[in-house]
Amino acid sequence: MCGQEQQRSDLARRDILAELCARFPGEVGEAAAPRPGRAWATVSREVLRPVTEFLLGCGPGAYLSTITAVDTGEEFQAIYHFWVAGTELNLRVRLDRREPAVPSIMDLHPGANFYEREIHDLMGIEVTGRGKLERLAVPDDWPEGHYPLRKDWPGLPGGESA
């Protein structure tokens, strides 16, 4: 799939959003394509792995740009930014504030390793199915349960901070 013809996007830009909706009927919500090369969609975390597998298989050189963790106040969102066949597909997974967790996609795409550790370190989103999440961004003596990018983070005890 990848490798032989590595010209990631010499291929014509495909309507990846339509293909995604057709492949996973009823699972893809809030589909939007605000401009050429950008697409947004929301899926549940249960189908995240199959969707990821589908997207990475969609074109030579499809890859995950990064994962953004957002705290909207009401909920957490993990946004997976995939670059697939000439489109940046932003896949949103909405998460309950009480139990924020997403399945790991590291086995499907090793490049996700650092991004998963990052959203765990900074936003406290659990990533299941990949063993212990080693710390990447925060120091070893960083206290447990402190996730600095959360809107309700009080700051570290004893420190002057947000």
Binding site: C2, G3, Q6, Q7, R8, D10, P60, G61, A62, Y63, L64, S65, H109, P110, G111, A112
Partner: peptide, 16 residues
């Protein structure tokens, strides 16, 4: 590709 490289690092591996 699998490791998600970008820029000159990817291009040096033949990925356009």
């Amino acid at each position: 590709v699998a490791l998600g490289t970008v820029g000159p690092t990817a291009r040096a591996s033949g990925i356009k």
